[in-house]
Structures are given as C-alpha cells and as structure tokens.
C-alpha cells in the first residue's frame, strides 16, 4: 500500500466526492418533497392523482436506478429531450427516492388512527389544521426509521452515476485503476470516501431513531 500514491490521488477523489454529494443530496431533497406529496395523495385518496401516483410508485420501486438512468440519459434524447448528465442523475435519484419516501410517509400516516382525526374535527379544527397539528407530528415519528433507511439507500445508489459518465467516486477509481494499475490504493481510497459519506449519516440516523422511539407516545 503506497501512501504517497494515495495522497496524490486525494484531490481527484475529493472532487469526485463533492460531485456525488451535490447530486446525491439534491436528489434526496427532491425525493422527500415528491414522496411527501405522493403519500398525501395516496393516503387521502385524492381522485385521479392518487391512482397515477400508485402506478408511479410501483414502477419505480420495481426497476433499478441504473436502467432508469440509461432510459433518461440515452433513451429520452431520441425523442428530442436532451438532459445533461448531472440533471439526469439528480432526477433519476429523485424519482426513485420519491417512490420509496412515499411508502415511508404513507405508513406514517396510516399509523395515526382515524379517530384522532375525528377528535380534532369535533373540536372544530379544519381538515388542513387537523393534518398539520395532529396527524403529521404523529405520522412523522413512525416514518423515521424507514426515512433514515431510505436516505442511506439513496446515497449508496449514487454509485451508479459513473454509468452516465458522471465523474463520481466509482468513475475516478475505475479510471485510475485503468491508467496506473494501483488497484489496492484506489480501492482503499474508494472505501474510505464512501465511509466518509455514509458513516456519519448512518450514525446520526441511529441516534435520531433511538430518540424518537423513546419519546414514544403510546398509552
């Protein structure tokens, strides 16, 4: 293991990590927004939109991100829709993540008993006030484990971005191995950088999960 070599590769890896993080987190934030909207549409059975959302969720939960990206990046341009690689990456992640987040949030909603909603309505709260002040806070704590798991999953999925020529960590590692054959050094750095991206999230996630579990509201 040649540490000099590893040090020389560091700047490349750091650049790559920045790209991964940028596209990754944009995708994740978008997926939370999409997922939340979908969960509301599904749980409250909004006509038409609810059904479309259902189809979207099944489609994106049962197909791999890599294929989705290929379709977006190589397939859509044939119809005249040219999307640049970074946008593709974020979009693909957002669409995939949205489907997973939708399920996580929906199970949160379903954990709140209807009679809680009724009790709020009987006091005169409007439906919107009921959702904001009574349903959401309770739904949130139930969704946390799945939510954390999804974020970790989505960050791991960013490892396929190299397939659409984005110069992320995998791309950098593969490239460097191909050029200089320092396989062990490259792979070690690869592992280290993914640990840097993911370990903090995993640890933070466990802490939040535990806090929320002990705050438990049940009788």
């Amino acid at each position: 293991m040649n540490f000099e070599v590893m040090r020389s590769y560091l700047p490349l890896y750091i650049e790559a990590m920045k790209l991964t993080l940028k596209i990754g987190w944009i995708g994740i934030v978008l997926s939370v927004i999409i997922g939340f909207a979908c969960a509301v549409a599904r749980h409250y059975r909004i006509p038409v939109i609810g059904r479309i959302v259902g189809v979207y969720i099944e489609l994106f939960r049962n197909t791999p991100l890599l294929v989705q990206l290929f379709f977006l990046y190589f397939g859509l341009p044939k119809l005249g829709l040219d999307i640049n690689a970074e946008v593709c990456g974020a979009l693909g992640l957002a669409l995939l993540g949205g489907a997973y987040m939708a399920e996580a949030f929906r199970s949160g909603f379903e954990a709140v008993e209807p009679i809680q909603t009724e009790s709020a309505l009987s006091l005169g709260l409007s439906p919107v006030q009921t959702v904001v002040h009574v349903v959401l806070p309770q739904a949130f704590s139930v969704s946390v484990p799945a939510f954390v798991a999804n974020i970790i999953f989505l960050l791991k999925e960013t490892s396929v971005f190299s397939a659409i020529s984005l110069m992320d960590l995998m791309f950098t590692a593969k490239d460097l191995i191909g050029l200089y054959y320092k396989t062990i050094e490259c792979l070690t750095l690869l592992v280290i950088f993914y640990l840097i991206i993911l370990l903090p999230v995993s640890i933070l996630g466990s802490i939040v999960e535990r806090k929320v579990r002990y705050a438990g509201f049940g009788d």
């Binding site: 970790i152 791991k156 999925e157 960013t158 490892s159 396929v160 995998m170 590692a173 593969k174 191995i177 396989t183 062990i184 792979l187 690869l190 592992v191 993914y194 640990l195 993911l198 370990l199 995993s202």
Partner: peptide, 17 residues
C-alpha cells in the same frame, strides 16, 4: 449497511485479482 454494492463488486472483482 454502509457500503454500496458497486464498491463491493469492484473490490471482489478487481481487488482479488
């Protein structure tokens, strides 16, 4: 939990060689 499968594939495929 934390390592992407792609990384593991690289390690096993390229690394073991």
């Amino acid at each position: 939990r934390v390592m992407p499968q792609m990384v593991l594939l690289f390690i096993v495929f390229f690394g073991t060689t």
